[in-house]
């Protein structure tokens, strides 16, 4: 009997995981760029315009489905892989393994779960707007204006803390994810890998700081 239990190769899991992850990493850059407009100091006007532009664009509409797909694939595969890997060592070691690996890589599943829970919370906030819990701002006619929601949510110090902790965990996840995606597609080369790792670290820090600035701004300054 085959012990495999999956019909696609282990490496194919890796490619899909990495491809979906890479797409999500690109999305994060877009997402951050848009969100930073919240800090424009015009009460969310520029932000609302860009959100409006994004949400009415046909291309972005399609990309939205792709994004959902990527999320679901990445999460589902992550769970499938984790289950398979745990089954691969039915009896663990008595002494906690001391093999040298970075904590970033060891706890990808754990950080992934935290990010997933955060994502649910985030989506909940998102849907509050969709369901019309917050007033439409300015001249916008569609219910795409998240600015009041942001202001409202970040009045709570708990929410600020939860968001910031989640961003730090996200940074942890990304620190490994960035170079890992390259490795999974076989792009590990003694010449370029050091640069890829550096860029990955900068990326992870930038995402964490970039997103964290927003709740801090609204809590302390706005």
């Amino acid at each position: 009997m085959s012990k495999k239990g999956f019909s696609i190769a282990s490496l194919s899991h890796k490619y899909i995981m990495a491809a979906a992850g890479a797409f999500l990493m690109l999305f994060l850059v877009m997402h951050l760029a848009t969100n930073l407009l919240l800090l424009a100091g015009d009460g969310g006007g520029t932000f609302a315009e860009s959100v409006d532009f994004l949400l009415t664009s046909r291309l972005i509409k399609i990309m939205e489905y792709v994004l959902f797909g990527a999320f679901i694939l990445h999460i589902l595969l992550g769970v499938v892989i984790e289950i398979h890997n745990r089954r691969s060592r039915p009896v663990g070691y008595h002494v906690k393994p001391k093999s040298g690996t970075s904590a970033f890589s060891k706890f990808m599943f754990h950080s992934g779960i935290i990010i997933f829970i955060f994502l649910l919370l985030h989506l909940y906030h998102f849907f509050l707007v969709k369901l019309g819990f917050f007033p439409v701002y300015g001249d916008a006619t569609e219910v795409h204006d998240f600015f009041p929601m942001v202001v409202y949510v970040f009045q709570s110090p708990w929410m600020v803390a939860i968001y910031i902790v989640s961003f730090i965990v996200l940074g942890f996840h990304l620190k490994h994810a960035f170079q890992s995606a390259f490795q999974s597609f076989g792009l590990n080369h003694d010449k370029y890998m050091p640069a890829i790792k550096t860029v990955g670290t900068i990326y992870a820090i930038a995402i964490t700081i970039g997103f964290s600035v927003i709740p801090l701004y609204f809590y302390f300054i706005y």
Partner: peptide
């Protein structure tokens, strides 16, 4: 029945012959 590689590189760290994970990348490629 082996598990899937998740690029944690413990293998490279503990390989008594110091084999590099660059070869895993090559296999992926």
């Amino acid at each position: 029945g082996f598990g899937f590689c998740s690029n944690t590189y413990a293998c490279e760290f503990d390989c008594p012959k110091g084999i590099s994970v660059e070869f895993i990348a090559q296999m992926n490629r």
